[in-house]
Design a protein around this nucleic acid. Structure first.
Length: 466
DNA sequence: ATCCAGGTTA
DNA sequence: TAACCTGGAT
Protein backbone atom coordinates (compact mmCIF):
# COMPACT_ATOMS: atom_id res chain seq x y z
CA UNK A 1 0.00 0.00 0.00
CA UNK A 2 1.47 3.18 -1.15
CA UNK A 3 0.12 5.50 1.40
CA UNK A 4 1.04 3.39 4.31
CA UNK A 5 2.67 4.89 7.29
CA UNK A 6 4.29 7.61 5.27
CA UNK A 7 4.64 10.45 7.64
CA UNK A 8 8.27 11.21 7.28
CA UNK A 9 8.34 14.79 6.15
CA UNK A 10 10.29 16.66 8.72
CA UNK A 11 7.91 19.16 10.07
CA UNK A 12 7.41 20.89 13.30
CA UNK A 13 4.30 19.75 15.00
CA UNK A 14 1.41 21.06 13.00
CA UNK A 15 -1.69 20.20 14.84
CA UNK A 16 -4.10 18.48 12.59
CA UNK A 17 -7.26 20.56 12.41
CA UNK A 18 -9.22 17.89 10.72
CA UNK A 19 -10.02 15.19 13.12
CA UNK A 20 -10.52 17.55 15.97
CA UNK A 21 -13.93 18.59 14.79
CA UNK A 22 -15.06 15.36 13.32
CA UNK A 23 -17.25 14.23 16.12
CA UNK A 24 -20.18 12.48 14.58
CA UNK A 25 -22.02 15.11 12.72
CA UNK A 26 -21.49 14.51 9.07
CA UNK A 27 -23.15 11.79 7.16
CA UNK A 28 -21.72 12.10 3.73
CA UNK A 29 -18.01 11.89 3.58
CA UNK A 30 -16.43 12.32 0.22
CA UNK A 31 -13.15 11.15 1.54
CA UNK A 32 -14.09 7.88 3.07
CA UNK A 33 -15.66 5.18 1.10
CA UNK A 34 -16.54 1.76 2.27
CA UNK A 35 -14.93 0.23 -0.76
CA UNK A 36 -17.07 -2.77 -0.30
CA UNK A 37 -19.86 -1.99 -2.65
CA UNK A 38 -18.34 -3.59 -5.64
CA UNK A 39 -18.68 -7.30 -5.98
CA UNK A 40 -15.43 -7.99 -4.32
CA UNK A 41 -15.31 -11.23 -6.09
CA UNK A 42 -13.55 -11.56 -9.39
CA UNK A 43 -14.61 -8.20 -10.69
CA UNK A 44 -11.03 -7.20 -10.67
CA UNK A 45 -9.10 -8.25 -13.66
CA UNK A 46 -5.50 -9.20 -13.39
CA UNK A 47 -5.44 -11.83 -10.75
CA UNK A 48 -6.00 -10.32 -7.41
CA UNK A 49 -3.24 -7.96 -6.68
CA UNK A 50 -5.42 -6.90 -3.84
CA UNK A 51 -4.20 -9.81 -1.87
CA UNK A 52 -7.07 -10.07 0.47
CA UNK A 53 -4.97 -10.51 3.47
CA UNK A 54 -6.01 -12.99 5.97
CA UNK A 55 -5.27 -12.99 9.58
CA UNK A 56 -1.93 -11.35 9.32
CA UNK A 57 -3.49 -8.16 8.23
CA UNK A 58 -5.52 -7.79 11.32
CA UNK A 59 -2.67 -6.38 13.28
CA UNK A 60 -1.80 -4.03 10.49
CA UNK A 61 -5.40 -2.98 10.24
CA UNK A 62 -5.63 -2.28 13.89
CA UNK A 63 -2.49 -0.24 14.12
CA UNK A 64 -3.22 1.59 10.93
CA UNK A 65 -6.73 2.49 11.95
CA UNK A 66 -5.74 3.43 15.40
CA UNK A 67 -2.97 5.74 14.35
CA UNK A 68 -5.25 7.27 11.80
CA UNK A 69 -8.10 7.77 14.23
CA UNK A 70 -6.06 9.19 17.05
CA UNK A 71 -3.37 11.26 15.44
CA UNK A 72 -3.18 14.90 16.32
CA UNK A 73 -0.29 16.08 14.22
CA UNK A 74 -1.03 17.12 10.69
CA UNK A 75 2.21 15.55 9.54
CA UNK A 76 0.40 12.28 9.89
CA UNK A 77 -1.07 12.99 6.48
CA UNK A 78 2.09 14.05 4.78
CA UNK A 79 3.14 12.19 1.71
CA UNK A 80 6.50 10.57 1.80
CA UNK A 81 8.74 11.98 -0.91
CA UNK A 82 8.53 8.77 -2.86
CA UNK A 83 4.77 8.56 -2.58
CA UNK A 84 4.42 12.16 -3.63
CA UNK A 85 6.62 11.50 -6.62
CA UNK A 86 4.72 8.38 -7.55
CA UNK A 87 1.42 10.15 -7.28
CA UNK A 88 2.65 13.02 -9.36
CA UNK A 89 3.98 10.68 -12.01
CA UNK A 90 0.73 8.77 -12.11
CA UNK A 91 -1.19 11.98 -12.52
CA UNK A 92 0.99 13.18 -15.35
CA UNK A 93 0.87 9.90 -17.17
CA UNK A 94 -2.88 9.83 -16.91
CA UNK A 95 -3.17 13.45 -17.93
CA UNK A 96 -1.03 12.96 -20.99
CA UNK A 97 -2.99 10.02 -22.27
CA UNK A 98 -6.49 10.32 -20.92
CA UNK A 99 -7.25 13.92 -20.25
CA UNK A 100 -10.14 15.60 -21.92
CA UNK A 101 -9.36 17.69 -24.94
CA UNK A 102 -10.26 21.26 -24.21
CA UNK A 103 -9.74 24.52 -26.03
CA UNK A 104 -8.02 26.36 -23.22
CA UNK A 105 -5.46 23.60 -23.09
CA UNK A 106 -4.47 24.29 -26.64
CA UNK A 107 -6.11 21.21 -28.01
CA UNK A 108 -7.44 21.12 -31.54
CA UNK A 109 -11.16 21.13 -32.16
CA UNK A 110 -12.81 17.87 -31.41
CA UNK A 111 -13.54 18.83 -27.83
CA UNK A 112 -14.96 16.49 -25.34
CA UNK A 113 -15.91 17.76 -21.96
CA UNK A 114 -17.99 14.74 -21.35
CA UNK A 115 -17.87 12.98 -18.06
CA UNK A 116 -19.78 10.00 -19.38
CA UNK A 117 -18.66 6.78 -17.89
CA UNK A 118 -17.04 8.42 -14.94
CA UNK A 119 -18.21 8.64 -11.41
CA UNK A 120 -20.05 11.81 -12.24
CA UNK A 121 -22.93 10.11 -13.93
CA UNK A 122 -22.42 6.66 -12.65
CA UNK A 123 -26.05 6.51 -11.72
CA UNK A 124 -27.20 7.58 -15.11
CA UNK A 125 -26.81 4.86 -17.60
CA UNK A 126 -24.99 7.06 -20.00
CA UNK A 127 -28.18 8.72 -20.93
CA UNK A 128 -26.71 12.14 -20.98
CA UNK A 129 -23.57 12.99 -22.70
CA UNK A 130 -21.47 16.03 -22.51
CA UNK A 131 -22.24 16.96 -26.02
CA UNK A 132 -25.88 17.16 -25.22
CA UNK A 133 -25.16 19.42 -22.35
CA UNK A 134 -23.00 21.70 -24.35
CA UNK A 135 -25.61 21.82 -27.00
CA UNK A 136 -28.25 22.60 -24.47
CA UNK A 137 -26.19 25.44 -23.17
CA UNK A 138 -25.82 26.90 -26.58
CA UNK A 139 -29.45 26.48 -27.39
CA UNK A 140 -30.54 27.91 -24.13
CA UNK A 141 -28.51 30.97 -24.82
CA UNK A 142 -29.85 31.68 -28.21
CA UNK A 143 -33.35 30.45 -27.84
CA UNK A 144 -35.53 33.29 -28.89
CA UNK A 145 -38.47 31.49 -30.29
CA UNK A 146 -41.14 29.76 -28.30
CA UNK A 147 -42.71 31.95 -25.73
CA UNK A 148 -43.38 28.99 -23.56
CA UNK A 149 -44.41 29.65 -20.04
CA UNK A 150 -42.13 27.32 -18.23
CA UNK A 151 -39.09 27.97 -20.28
CA UNK A 152 -36.18 28.82 -18.18
CA UNK A 153 -35.40 32.43 -18.19
CA UNK A 154 -31.92 32.88 -19.44
CA UNK A 155 -30.01 35.93 -20.34
CA UNK A 156 -30.61 35.15 -23.93
CA UNK A 157 -34.30 35.09 -23.28
CA UNK A 158 -34.10 38.40 -21.61
CA UNK A 159 -32.35 39.96 -24.50
CA UNK A 160 -34.90 38.66 -26.92
CA UNK A 161 -37.82 39.78 -24.89
CA UNK A 162 -36.19 43.01 -23.97
CA UNK A 163 -35.86 43.94 -27.58
CA UNK A 164 -39.57 43.49 -27.98
CA UNK A 165 -40.82 45.04 -24.82
CA UNK A 166 -38.31 47.79 -24.76
CA UNK A 167 -37.30 47.66 -21.18
CA UNK A 168 -38.36 50.60 -19.15
CA UNK A 169 -35.68 50.82 -16.58
CA UNK A 170 -32.60 50.42 -18.58
CA UNK A 171 -29.94 50.47 -16.02
CA UNK A 172 -26.77 49.97 -17.86
CA UNK A 173 -24.82 49.42 -14.75
CA UNK A 174 -25.06 46.01 -13.27
CA UNK A 175 -26.21 42.66 -14.50
CA UNK A 176 -28.84 42.39 -11.89
CA UNK A 177 -31.50 45.00 -11.64
CA UNK A 178 -33.72 43.34 -9.14
CA UNK A 179 -32.69 41.38 -6.16
CA UNK A 180 -34.96 38.41 -5.85
CA UNK A 181 -36.07 37.52 -2.41
CA UNK A 182 -35.18 33.90 -2.61
CA UNK A 183 -32.60 32.07 -4.56
CA UNK A 184 -34.58 29.08 -5.55
CA UNK A 185 -36.38 29.49 -8.75
CA UNK A 186 -35.80 33.17 -8.71
CA UNK A 187 -36.10 34.71 -12.06
CA UNK A 188 -33.01 36.23 -13.40
CA UNK A 189 -33.10 39.91 -14.01
CA UNK A 190 -30.24 40.32 -16.34
CA UNK A 191 -28.40 43.35 -17.53
CA UNK A 192 -30.06 46.14 -19.33
CA UNK A 193 -28.43 45.63 -22.64
CA UNK A 194 -31.34 45.95 -24.91
CA UNK A 195 -29.38 47.29 -27.79
CA UNK A 196 -27.25 44.23 -28.13
CA UNK A 197 -30.09 41.82 -27.85
CA UNK A 198 -30.27 40.41 -31.32
CA UNK A 199 -26.60 40.46 -31.69
CA UNK A 200 -26.18 38.76 -28.38
CA UNK A 201 -28.53 36.00 -29.28
CA UNK A 202 -26.69 35.52 -32.49
CA UNK A 203 -23.33 35.48 -30.83
CA UNK A 204 -24.31 32.90 -28.36
CA UNK A 205 -25.66 30.50 -30.80
CA UNK A 206 -22.38 28.71 -30.69
CA UNK A 207 -23.35 26.38 -33.42
CA UNK A 208 -20.42 25.07 -35.25
CA UNK A 209 -18.23 26.23 -32.49
CA UNK A 210 -17.15 22.97 -31.08
CA UNK A 211 -16.93 21.02 -34.24
CA UNK A 212 -15.45 23.18 -36.86
CA UNK A 213 -13.34 25.82 -35.30
CA UNK A 214 -11.95 26.73 -38.64
CA UNK A 215 -8.65 25.12 -38.06
CA UNK A 216 -8.33 23.94 -41.60
CA UNK A 217 -4.80 24.43 -42.60
CA UNK A 218 -3.43 23.22 -45.85
CA UNK A 219 -1.64 20.51 -43.99
CA UNK A 220 -4.74 18.43 -43.74
CA UNK A 221 -5.03 16.44 -40.58
CA UNK A 222 -2.42 18.19 -38.51
CA UNK A 223 -4.73 20.76 -37.03
CA UNK A 224 -3.09 23.76 -35.55
CA UNK A 225 -3.26 23.71 -31.83
CA UNK A 226 -4.89 26.59 -30.18
CA UNK A 227 -2.59 29.07 -28.64
CA UNK A 228 -2.48 28.94 -24.87
CA UNK A 229 -2.25 32.39 -23.42
CA UNK A 230 -2.30 33.59 -19.86
CA UNK A 231 -5.40 35.55 -20.69
CA UNK A 232 -7.06 32.49 -22.12
CA UNK A 233 -6.25 30.49 -19.04
CA UNK A 234 -7.58 33.30 -16.91
CA UNK A 235 -10.85 33.43 -18.81
CA UNK A 236 -11.28 29.69 -18.66
CA UNK A 237 -10.62 29.54 -14.96
CA UNK A 238 -13.15 32.24 -14.23
CA UNK A 239 -15.74 30.49 -16.31
CA UNK A 240 -14.91 27.12 -14.82
CA UNK A 241 -15.36 28.44 -11.33
CA UNK A 242 -19.06 28.39 -11.76
CA UNK A 243 -19.91 26.05 -14.55
CA UNK A 244 -19.09 22.56 -15.65
CA UNK A 245 -16.58 22.01 -18.35
CA UNK A 246 -19.02 20.86 -20.97
CA UNK A 247 -21.14 23.92 -20.55
CA UNK A 248 -18.21 26.29 -20.62
CA UNK A 249 -16.74 25.11 -23.91
CA UNK A 250 -19.10 26.92 -26.30
CA UNK A 251 -19.04 30.07 -24.22
CA UNK A 252 -15.29 30.03 -24.04
CA UNK A 253 -14.94 29.65 -27.78
CA UNK A 254 -17.27 32.52 -28.47
CA UNK A 255 -15.66 34.66 -25.82
CA UNK A 256 -12.18 34.16 -27.15
CA UNK A 257 -13.38 34.79 -30.63
CA UNK A 258 -14.81 38.14 -29.64
CA UNK A 259 -12.27 39.10 -27.02
CA UNK A 260 -9.06 37.37 -28.05
CA UNK A 261 -6.77 39.44 -25.88
CA UNK A 262 -6.83 41.35 -22.65
CA UNK A 263 -6.82 44.54 -24.62
CA UNK A 264 -9.82 43.48 -26.61
CA UNK A 265 -11.72 42.72 -23.46
CA UNK A 266 -10.65 45.89 -21.75
CA UNK A 267 -11.83 47.97 -24.67
CA UNK A 268 -15.13 46.20 -25.04
CA UNK A 269 -18.23 47.82 -23.69
CA UNK A 270 -20.21 46.36 -20.93
CA UNK A 271 -23.17 45.24 -22.93
CA UNK A 272 -20.99 43.26 -25.23
CA UNK A 273 -19.30 41.59 -22.29
CA UNK A 274 -22.57 40.83 -20.59
CA UNK A 275 -24.02 39.45 -23.76
CA UNK A 276 -21.23 36.97 -24.12
CA UNK A 277 -21.59 35.86 -20.56
CA UNK A 278 -25.33 35.46 -20.78
CA UNK A 279 -26.39 32.08 -19.56
CA UNK A 280 -23.37 31.24 -17.52
CA UNK A 281 -24.66 32.66 -14.28
CA UNK A 282 -22.79 34.47 -11.56
CA UNK A 283 -22.81 37.51 -13.78
CA UNK A 284 -20.90 39.54 -11.31
CA UNK A 285 -17.83 37.67 -12.41
CA UNK A 286 -18.17 38.85 -15.94
CA UNK A 287 -18.02 42.34 -14.55
CA UNK A 288 -15.03 41.48 -12.40
CA UNK A 289 -13.28 39.87 -15.32
CA UNK A 290 -13.96 42.93 -17.38
CA UNK A 291 -12.64 45.32 -14.78
CA UNK A 292 -9.77 42.94 -14.17
CA UNK A 293 -8.83 43.17 -17.80
CA UNK A 294 -8.95 46.92 -17.61
CA UNK A 295 -6.77 46.81 -14.55
CA UNK A 296 -4.21 44.62 -16.27
CA UNK A 297 -4.13 47.02 -19.18
CA UNK A 298 -3.63 50.05 -17.04
CA UNK A 299 -1.62 48.84 -14.08
CA UNK A 300 0.31 46.08 -15.80
CA UNK A 301 0.63 47.53 -19.28
CA UNK A 302 -1.54 44.84 -20.73
CA UNK A 303 0.55 41.92 -19.55
CA UNK A 304 -1.04 39.38 -17.26
CA UNK A 305 1.04 39.07 -14.10
CA UNK A 306 2.86 35.82 -13.63
CA UNK A 307 3.08 35.49 -9.88
CA UNK A 308 0.42 34.47 -7.44
CA UNK A 309 0.81 37.61 -5.38
CA UNK A 310 0.45 39.94 -8.31
CA UNK A 311 -2.38 37.97 -9.84
CA UNK A 312 -4.35 38.17 -6.64
CA UNK A 313 -4.40 41.93 -6.90
CA UNK A 314 -6.47 41.72 -10.05
CA UNK A 315 -10.21 41.97 -9.75
CA UNK A 316 -11.95 38.67 -9.54
CA UNK A 317 -8.79 36.68 -8.99
CA UNK A 318 -8.52 34.96 -5.67
CA UNK A 319 -6.05 32.43 -4.45
CA UNK A 320 -7.40 29.63 -6.56
CA UNK A 321 -7.44 31.50 -9.84
CA UNK A 322 -4.11 33.12 -9.16
CA UNK A 323 -2.50 29.77 -8.50
CA UNK A 324 -4.14 28.21 -11.52
CA UNK A 325 -2.98 30.92 -13.89
CA UNK A 326 0.51 31.03 -12.39
CA UNK A 327 0.99 27.30 -12.70
CA UNK A 328 -0.80 26.63 -15.97
CA UNK A 329 0.20 29.69 -17.93
CA UNK A 330 3.56 30.49 -16.35
CA UNK A 331 4.71 27.11 -15.16
CA UNK A 332 5.14 28.25 -11.60
CA UNK A 333 5.51 25.35 -9.25
CA UNK A 334 2.60 26.23 -7.02
CA UNK A 335 -0.30 24.07 -5.94
CA UNK A 336 -3.91 24.71 -6.76
CA UNK A 337 -6.68 23.73 -4.41
CA UNK A 338 -10.30 23.72 -5.41
CA UNK A 339 -13.17 21.51 -4.44
CA UNK A 340 -12.04 18.76 -6.77
CA UNK A 341 -8.50 18.76 -5.46
CA UNK A 342 -9.87 18.69 -1.94
CA UNK A 343 -11.75 15.57 -2.78
CA UNK A 344 -8.71 13.85 -4.22
CA UNK A 345 -6.62 14.85 -1.25
CA UNK A 346 -9.32 13.70 1.06
CA UNK A 347 -9.29 10.27 -0.44
CA UNK A 348 -5.53 10.11 -0.66
CA UNK A 349 -4.97 10.94 2.94
CA UNK A 350 -8.07 9.71 4.64
CA UNK A 351 -8.85 13.18 5.76
CA UNK A 352 -12.57 12.92 5.70
CA UNK A 353 -13.82 16.22 6.79
CA UNK A 354 -16.75 17.46 4.88
CA UNK A 355 -15.70 19.20 1.74
CA UNK A 356 -17.30 22.37 2.93
CA UNK A 357 -15.07 22.50 5.90
CA UNK A 358 -12.34 25.03 5.67
CA UNK A 359 -9.80 22.54 6.95
CA UNK A 360 -8.74 21.36 3.54
CA UNK A 361 -9.76 24.13 1.25
CA UNK A 362 -9.18 27.35 3.08
CA UNK A 363 -6.83 26.03 5.67
CA UNK A 364 -3.24 25.27 5.07
CA UNK A 365 -3.45 21.48 5.08
CA UNK A 366 -4.93 21.28 1.63
CA UNK A 367 -2.44 23.63 0.09
CA UNK A 368 0.38 21.99 1.96
CA UNK A 369 -0.54 18.52 0.77
CA UNK A 370 -1.17 19.64 -2.79
CA UNK A 371 2.16 21.40 -2.72
CA UNK A 372 3.91 18.22 -1.69
CA UNK A 373 2.64 16.51 -4.80
CA UNK A 374 3.15 19.38 -7.20
CA UNK A 375 6.68 20.00 -6.01
CA UNK A 376 7.67 16.37 -5.89
CA UNK A 377 10.42 15.19 -8.16
CA UNK A 378 11.69 17.93 -10.38
CA UNK A 379 8.63 20.02 -9.68
CA UNK A 380 8.07 20.75 -13.32
CA UNK A 381 4.79 20.69 -15.19
CA UNK A 382 2.99 22.06 -12.18
CA UNK A 383 0.15 23.25 -14.35
CA UNK A 384 -0.41 19.80 -15.75
CA UNK A 385 -0.24 18.20 -12.34
CA UNK A 386 -2.78 20.67 -11.05
CA UNK A 387 -5.09 20.18 -13.98
CA UNK A 388 -4.80 16.45 -13.63
CA UNK A 389 -5.80 16.63 -10.00
CA UNK A 390 -8.75 18.85 -10.75
CA UNK A 391 -9.90 16.75 -13.65
CA UNK A 392 -9.55 13.60 -11.67
CA UNK A 393 -11.62 15.07 -8.89
CA UNK A 394 -14.25 15.97 -11.42
CA UNK A 395 -14.40 12.59 -13.10
CA UNK A 396 -13.34 9.32 -11.55
CA UNK A 397 -12.89 10.82 -8.15
CA UNK A 398 -16.18 12.69 -8.22
CA UNK A 399 -18.43 13.06 -5.19
CA UNK A 400 -20.66 10.20 -6.15
CA UNK A 401 -17.82 7.90 -6.93
CA UNK A 402 -16.38 5.30 -4.66
CA UNK A 403 -12.77 5.98 -5.33
CA UNK A 404 -12.37 2.47 -6.64
CA UNK A 405 -12.77 3.01 -10.35
CA UNK A 406 -10.20 0.97 -12.17
CA UNK A 407 -9.38 3.83 -14.46
CA UNK A 408 -8.58 6.11 -11.59
CA UNK A 409 -4.83 6.56 -11.78
CA UNK A 410 -4.58 7.14 -8.06
CA UNK A 411 -6.84 4.34 -7.05
CA UNK A 412 -4.09 2.41 -5.33
CA UNK A 413 -3.00 5.41 -3.34
CA UNK A 414 -6.26 6.15 -1.62
CA UNK A 415 -5.92 5.80 2.11
CA UNK A 416 -9.68 6.15 2.29
CA UNK A 417 -10.06 2.86 0.50
CA UNK A 418 -7.63 1.19 2.79
CA UNK A 419 -9.43 2.56 5.78
CA UNK A 420 -12.72 1.39 4.45
CA UNK A 421 -11.46 -2.10 3.82
CA UNK A 422 -9.71 -2.31 7.12
CA UNK A 423 -12.78 -1.21 8.98
CA UNK A 424 -14.89 -3.62 7.06
CA UNK A 425 -12.61 -6.50 7.77
CA UNK A 426 -12.38 -5.51 11.36
CA UNK A 427 -16.07 -5.15 11.90
CA UNK A 428 -17.10 -8.11 9.84
CA UNK A 429 -16.68 -10.61 12.58
CA UNK A 430 -18.18 -8.47 15.24
CA UNK A 431 -21.77 -7.50 15.08
CA UNK A 432 -22.14 -5.45 11.99
CA UNK A 433 -22.86 -1.84 12.43
CA UNK A 434 -26.07 -0.22 11.48
CA UNK A 435 -24.91 1.14 8.22
CA UNK A 436 -25.68 -1.26 5.47
CA UNK A 437 -26.39 1.15 2.74
CA UNK A 438 -22.87 1.98 1.87
CA UNK A 439 -22.18 5.26 3.47
CA UNK A 440 -20.70 5.26 6.86
CA UNK A 441 -20.21 8.34 8.88
CA UNK A 442 -16.76 9.28 9.83
CA UNK A 443 -17.71 9.14 13.45
CA UNK A 444 -18.69 5.58 12.90
CA UNK A 445 -15.38 4.82 11.33
CA UNK A 446 -13.57 6.36 14.20
CA UNK A 447 -15.52 4.47 16.76
CA UNK A 448 -15.03 1.35 14.74
CA UNK A 449 -11.35 2.01 14.51
CA UNK A 450 -11.22 2.55 18.21
CA UNK A 451 -13.24 -0.60 18.68
CA UNK A 452 -10.75 -2.51 16.62
CA UNK A 453 -7.96 -1.29 18.73
CA UNK A 454 -9.81 -1.99 21.91
CA UNK A 455 -10.79 -5.37 20.66
CA UNK A 456 -7.23 -6.13 19.86
CA UNK A 457 -6.06 -5.27 23.30
CA UNK A 458 -8.72 -5.89 25.82
CA UNK A 459 -11.16 -7.85 23.77
CA UNK A 460 -14.01 -5.64 24.76
CA UNK A 461 -15.57 -3.82 21.87
CA UNK A 462 -18.58 -1.66 22.14
CA UNK A 463 -19.70 -0.70 18.67
CA UNK A 464 -22.62 1.36 19.80
CA UNK A 465 -21.28 4.85 20.03
CA UNK A 466 -20.95 7.08 17.03
C1' DA B 1 -39.57 19.17 -5.78
C1' DT B 2 -35.43 20.13 -3.09
C1' DC B 3 -30.75 20.44 -2.48
C1' DC B 4 -26.11 21.12 -3.63
C1' DA B 5 -21.49 22.45 -5.87
C1' DG B 6 -18.47 26.07 -7.17
C1' DG B 7 -14.68 30.67 -5.95
C1' DT B 8 -14.68 35.47 -4.88
C1' DT B 9 -16.24 39.53 -2.83
C1' DA B 10 -18.26 42.73 0.38
C1' DT C 1 -20.39 34.36 6.27
C1' DA C 2 -23.86 35.30 3.06
C1' DA C 3 -24.78 36.30 -1.63
C1' DC C 4 -24.32 35.30 -6.23
C1' DC C 5 -26.77 31.65 -10.49
C1' DT C 6 -27.30 27.56 -12.98
C1' DG C 7 -27.39 22.74 -13.96
C1' DG C 8 -27.25 18.35 -12.19
C1' DA C 9 -28.11 14.94 -8.60
C1' DT C 10 -31.27 13.15 -5.32
Amino acid sequence: WAGAGAGAAASSSRTCPVESDLDDSDTSEPGIEPADRAPVRSSDSSGGSAEDGDDDDDDDDASFLWSWATHVDASHHDFSPSDADDIRAALLEWYDSKRRKLPWRGDPPPYDGSTAGTAVNASNGGKKKGGAKARAAAEGADGDDEDGKKRQRTMGDFFSSASKSKSKSKSKKRPKAVRPKRNRGAKVEPPGADAASDEAAEELSCRGGANNASEEDGEGRAEAKREVTAYGVWVSEIMLQQTRVEAVIPYYLKWMERFPTVQALAEADEEDVNAHWAGLGFYRRARLLHTGAKMVCTAYSGIVPSTVDELMKVNGIGRYTASAVASIAFDRSVPVVDGNVCRVLSRLTGIANHIKSAALKDGEPGWELAGQIVKAGDGKRAGDVNQAMMELGATYCAPTGTGTDERDPLREYYASTRIGRAVRRATRRGSSTSSTKGTTSIGEYISNAAAVRRGGRSGRSAPGGA
